[in-house]
Amino acid sequence: MKRIGVIGGGQLALMMGSAAQKLSVELIVQTPNPNDPAVSIASNTIFAAVDDATATAELAKQCDVITFENEFIDIQALSKLATDKVCFRPRIEALSPLLDKYHQRCFLQDLGIPVPKFTLPESLFAVSSQTIQYTKITFPAVLKARRHGYDGQGTFIINDLTSLEKKLYQDPGKNHKNNLIESHFLLEEFIPFQKELAVVAARSTSGEISTFVVVETQQEQQVCRRVIAPADISLQIEKTIKDIACKVLDNLQVVGVFAIELFLTNSGEVLVNEIAPRTHNSGHFSIDACFTSQFEQHLRVVSDLPLGNVAMKIPCAIMVNLLGYETLKSNYSDKRSELAKIPGAHVHWYGKSESRPGRKLGHITVLFDKLNRDEAMTIANNIESIWYS
């Protein structure tokens, strides 16, 4: 039996569980807390932070290959472990240009892949002991933490210079040179888009690539609320997006599943927003709607198994995230029971012990026997009225 180490024990690792059983793969998880979701499906758990490379060295002794559930890792420390005896998939070199959002933007730009205009905020200011001079930026703009931002955390819509100063400097109006926050941000143009899109793609050890259908993602406050599969886009836009995915994965020589989030602008241009070097929220629909889920596909490629068929089994699906809206210890069993009664519904619960605003507690996917986006959105609104009532 193949033994796969997973760095991270959240819901993405949890959802590998049923795929691991199907493929007769054993999962060993490195995660800090006994109540983390994936502990329940792991054959063994090393309780340590995901950036604890010493714990990862112990994990490697129990596994044939190590993969990642999240990217909050110490990449320099892991690079020292990445020898012939410790096999990381995707490889550490494939992760290196992606974990820092500024480096990721530069990587994509060097490949000739369109991205929003971007810069480092400090390059926009002429600093003196008393004043800060504003140059060459149009508001609104988007300020992002270069590392460790997710689910809207670390991302800010900036509408004016004063707001930008408050985010960038510990003590606005004083000596900015001495008060610049060293957490490092990326500043980029705000894109007026007609749709946000995403695609999940897998690349095998032989270099074969398969892509799931392109989906539309609907965000609120930079957190994904809904995913519609397939996206309502032209064949040419779909081809452009899948070509981008292939170019990225081939250039990095990825082995594993990556997700790419994109903007479709009002002028019809496709811009890459972000790359997630792992399974992703935009691919959760695949568990119920596709012959092979993103989680099974990921385990297949990291285990040297043939790629699965990622075609959709049905014409249309919509995935709705069940987000926390209060601070409370509850499993919301009554609401989940009500949601499960919706025709075509599949409710997935992550087993987290506490709800808090914005936290992903589960998701629901509804399958449709015909392509009807109006009906899908009506069902999504019904789901949210039940969940957030």
Rank of each mutant, 00 (worst) to 15 (best):
D64V: 11
P192L: 12
I318W: 08
E93R: 06
K360L: 13
H284M: 05
Q253G: 07
E296M: 06
F193D: 01
F368N: 00
L235C: 08
S333P: 00
A145I: 14
G154T: 12
A380L: 03
F88Y: 08
K80I: 13
H280P: 07
F118H: 12
N321H: 04
E238K: 15
M15L: 07
A57P: 02
K117V: 04
K61F: 02
L249Q: 04
K352T: 10
P277A: 07
T162V: 08
I386G: 01
S204R: 11
F47L: 06
Q236H: 15
V6M: 13
A317Y: 02
D250S: 07
V366Q: 03
K177C: 10
D51P: 06
V270T: 11
A311F: 08
L124E: 06
I4P: 08
T217K: 00
L323G: 08
G362F: 04
L264M: 04
F190D: 12
R146L: 10
I237Y: 00
D304N: 12
R373K: 15
A345V: 05
S267G: 05
L180M: 14
D51R: 09
T131C: 12
R356W: 10
D334H: 14
V227I: 07
F193E: 00
V255M: 03
Q194E: 10
H184C: 02
L323H: 00
T45V: 15
Y350N: 05
V347K: 08
E71D: 06
F68V: 08
N281T: 03
N33C: 12
S24G: 09
F88C: 03
I4R: 13
Q133K: 09
Q221G: 05
V199M: 05
L111S: 06
R146S: 06
F125A: 05
E216C: 04
S129M: 10
V214E: 01
N382W: 10
V6N: 13
L323N: 01
F368W: 11
E375Y: 14
H363K: 05
I66H: 01
F88T: 00
P32H: 01
G17R: 10
I191V: 15
A276E: 05
I241M: 12
S337I: 15
T67M: 04
A231Y: 00
A376L: 14
M377F: 14
M312Q: 12
G8I: 06
A141T: 15
P121N: 03
I275W: 10
E26Q: 14
S303P: 00
D369C: 03
D110S: 15
G268H: 01
A55D: 12
R147G: 01
F190T: 08
K80H: 11
T155Y: 02
L264R: 08
R356V: 01
Y325L: 02
P357I: 07
V227D: 00
V347Q: 07
M1D: 09
E26I: 14
E26M: 08
I4L: 10
H298I: 14
L168V: 11
F125D: 12
D171H: 14
C87R: 14
I46Q: 02
K177V: 13
D151E: 07
D84P: 04
I157M: 10
G9Y: 09
L322V: 03
N175A: 09
Q294V: 08
H348F: 04
V213D: 13
P277V: 01
L197K: 01
D374C: 01
F285E: 01
I241Q: 02
C224D: 09
D288K: 13
D250T: 15
L339K: 05
H348W: 08
F118P: 04
A13N: 09
V200N: 12
